[in-house]
């Protein structure tokens, strides 16, 4: 039982890493990873929103299925996520000001982050149970955080590098991302062997 959850958690973090393997959330990955602090803040905010979004959308999907409205999934999910992020922002601002100073800035960015919508739909498609889905959300968020933190370190080095003129800026960043992603390819298969899932 525990092994199953651990398997989902680590496969989301390493094997199916949302950014480096499944290419979800590329915009914030490239946009906010220039500094270590903002990378951690963004990663933590995404993790929080992912778990809460799954906590809400998974029961919602059961309702949609019960009413025969599965085709409304996309519209319902994106609206719920957008509302949720706004609400979360207001709640955190009112009740937990220190957390708001740390994460609040990143919350509006997350509304239309494809990683959040992506994880909610993935959990439905994979047929996860409610606890499994929550664990998957946590794993996807932590995987995003890990990728952001690793890549912020790489980018600091990039600032001193002198690539050919046409490669400056985005192209060299993408090529470094390719090398970072290469390290994650090595994880495929590892989790299955570890947990026998």
């Amino acid at each position: 039982m525990m092994a199953q959850y651990a398997s989902i958690l680590f496969s989301m973090i390493l094997v199916n890493n949302f950014v480096l393997v499944r290419f979800l959330g590329i915009c914030p990955f490239l946009g906010v990873s220039k500094k270590f602090d903002s990378a951690v803040g963004m990663g933590a905010a995404v993790t929080l929103v992912m778990v809460i979004a799954i906590a809400v959308t998974w029961p919602l999907q059961q309702l949609l299925v019960a009413w025969g409205l599965e085709y409304l999934q996309t519209i319902a999910f994106i609206l719920v996520i957008a509302t949720l992020v706004q609400l979360l922002e207001m709640i955190i601002k009112k009740f937990i000001p220190p957390l708001y100073t740390a994460l609040g800035v990143y919350l509006p960015l997350i509304t239309t982050n494809c990683a959040v919508l992506g994880i909610t739909i993935t959990c439905i498609d994979e047929g996860y149970t409610y606890p499994q889905a929550l664990v998957a959300g946590l794993g996807a968020g932590l995987g995003f955080l890990l990728a952001m933190v690793l890549f912020s370190g790489v980018r600091r080095r990039l600032e001193d590098a002198e690539p050919p003129e046409a490669f400056r800026g985005m192209p060299i960043t993408l090529i470094s991302a390719a090398i970072t992603a290469l390290s994650f390819v090595g994880f495929s298969g590892v989790i299955d062997h570890l947990f026998g899932a």
Binding site: T173, A178, V185
Partner: peptide, 17 residues
């Protein structure tokens, strides 16, 4: 996935060039 990042990087560099 790594190939995707690399090819996009090279294509963008090409368009910038």
């Amino acid at each position: 996935p790594p190939g995707g990042f690399a090819v996009l990087g090279v294509l963008i560099a090409g368009s910038v060039w």
